[in-house]
Design a protein around this nucleic acid. Structure first.
Length: 508
RNA sequence: GGCGGUAUCGUCUAGUGGCCUAGGACAGGGCCCUCUCACGGCUCAAACACGGGUUCGAUCCCCGUUACCGCUACCA
């Protein structure tokens, strides 16, 4: 019974694109690619109260940034559209009616007050609307056909509820967790159609997954509890044979505390939770994303993939293609994972240091341009080669290289003062006056040869001269090889900096 | 509360009855390299939740307890 692999990501356009959501996208994508299947993007916009303008485009942007674009969906189109649930409203109503006609669903006219009263009475923390209490309520099970028709004709608000079977066991197989079962007498009568005629998630997801011929459902573990309802719906609608395989993904948890990772946690602990910057159009609040924080999409995707999955070896760095090749559902971990930002940083660091500098060129050039600095590409590349291994985030590329492009604003005089003495002062004076102009070509290796040689000729340990030299050139105790720095600065600029700094060091 | 799920170092995890003296990675400590900071190399510390079974033998299988997570909306 091999069938064509068709998977979908079905977000509701309500806000930022969470890490967990991105990982769901990734696993969907990997599975589709691996099986030459199709990856569908469906927008679940059935809740008009939570709908947020711009969120749909934003979701698409996030997928694009990660290179995980769908084959089919709102943007690409396809044969199974429309791909926006708000455009499929009539469809759901038709199936709801079918269920009612079969006796598997019913109209319910209870007001919110009546519902609240009932819940209080049965002391339920859930809907309380179940097989044990539905006969006490105002619905098409308790009202005569005439009464029901009259209410509907009079425009009385109503919802359609699923009539949960009485004493059945529902079994289904989860690809990650194995066999799972529920007893229907523990489940309640969920709303299928809301009073505005829109379906709830439960109805919509089943109808759409069937109509779109979805073969595998990858979704968060939070859906596990409602899966029996969905399975029952597939059965009652007569689609049992087409039931997709379920794979409920472990949740991504808060780093320290308890519960699901939320945007709040990121704000509190200073790390992003969303893939890309998200600006709430109502409040105007901006939430930083991994992209803007300075993550490379490849690193972000790699980190996500390893959050709950591994290939069984000790390999940790995977390209997208490798992931496509090696991904497997049975290697997905069952337990939730606490998110560790340090680990995310490590992945990014790894990618930055191993990535050819040319990959950062356009980013870096734009950054320099913004600062009004213009430098030849080749030089930028050389400098990036020198410093990228000490960067975990893209902005650190600048933080670790600014001194190549502009003179230090101040020098760490304190840092050298302890070791600064007459001997060194004399040495640098002589170096500048007697030796500096002799260094040609002015290249790393040759600079080193000259400076070390000059020191040794004067009976000094060359190593001791290098730290002061470094501070003179860059302003502090940091950076790559001091000779490489000198070369990039050029003979004149290096000399100028040395003179300024030396005067500062000599002052006291 | 009910229902469902999960349980290995601080964190992400490997492990599918003997290869385990429980492996790797992040973070942390130390050492080496060294002109600083990194990179790299070496190294230290660090875990099978608990109690019963099953078995010649349990991290691994079964049961219970505990803990944690999720669901329990006309939200998804």
């Amino acid at each position: 019974m091999e069938r064509k692999v068709r998977v979908r990501f079905a977000p509701s356009p309500t806000g930022g694109m969470h890490l967990g959501g991105m990982r769901t996208v990734l696993y969907n994508y990997l599975f589709a690619r691996q099986h030459n299947g199709s990856f569908v993007l469906r927008i679940e916009d059935t809740d008009r109260f939570r709908y947020v303008e711009g969120a749909e485009q934003y979701i698409k942007d996030c997928l694009k940034w990660c290179g995980l674009e769908p084959d089919e969906g709102v943007e690409q189109g396809g044969e199974y559209g429309p791909y926006r649930q708000s455009d499929r409203k009539a469809l759901y109503q038709r199936y709801a009616e079918k269920l009612i006609a079969q006796g598997d669903a019913y109209y319910a006219f209870d007001t919110p007050e009546e519902l609240a009263e009932m819940r209080k009475r049965v002391k339920s923390q859930g809907s309380g609307y179940d097989q044990h209490h539905r006969l006490e309520m105002k619905n098409s099970l308790t009202l005569s056909e005439d009464e029901v028709q009259k209410l509907i004709d009079a425009g009385a608000p109503y919802v359609v509820r699923f009539k949960m079977p009485e004493a059945e066991s529902v079994y289904f197989k989860d690809l990650i967790r194995g066999e799972i079962s529920f007893e229907t007498n523990q489940l309640d009568d969920k709303v299928l159609l809301k009073k505005d005629g829109m379906p709830t998630y439960h109805l919509a997801v089943v109808v759409d997954d069937y109509l779109m011929e979805i073969s595998h459902i990858f979704r968060g573990e939070e859906w596990l509890s409602s899966t029996p309802l969905h399975v029952l719906l597939w059965e009652k609608l007569g689609w049992k044979d087409a039931l997709p395989d379920y794979a409920h993904l472990p949740l991504i948890l808060k780093p320290n505390g308890k519960g699901k990772l939320s945007k709040r946690d990121g704000d509190k602990m200073g790390f992003p939770v969303y893939a890309m910057n998200w600006k709430d159009p109502k409040t105007g609040d901006l939430t930083e994303g991994f992209k803007e924080r300075g993550f490379l999409p490849e690193a972000f995707v790699n980190m996500l993939a390893l959050l709950g999955w591994n290939d069984g070896t000790e390999q940790e760095i995977f390209s997208l293609n490798e992931l496509v090749e090696k991904f497997s559902i049975d290697r997905i971990h069952k337990g939730g994972a606490k998110f560790d930002y340090d680990r995310a940083l490590w992945f990014n660091h790894n990618y930055i240091k191993d990535c050819p500098s040319s990959e950062f060129l356009s980013y870096f050039k734009a950054l320099l341009e913004e600062k009004g600095i213009s430098v030849e590409e080749e030089k930028i590349l050389t400098i990036l080669d020198l410093i990228k291994e000490r960067c975990s985030l893209l902005p650190e590329l600048w933080e670790n290289s600014y001194y190549f492009f502009q003179r230090p604003g101040e020098w760490d005089v304190k840092g050298v003062k302890k070791k600064w003495d007459e001997e060194k002062s004399v040495f640098f004076k002589a170096l500048l006056e007697e030796e500096w102009d002799q260094i040609a070509p002015f290249e790393e290796e040759n600079i080193e040869k000259h400076i070390r040689g000059f020191a040794e000729k004067r009976g000094l340990k060359s190593g001791k001269m290098l730290l002061p030299l470094r501070v003179m050139l860059v302003g502090g105790k940091f950076g790559p090889s001091v000779f490489a720095i000198a070369e990039q600065l050029g003979k004149e600029e290096a000399k100028a900096r040395m003179e300024i700094a030396k005067a500062l060091f000599d002052e006291d």
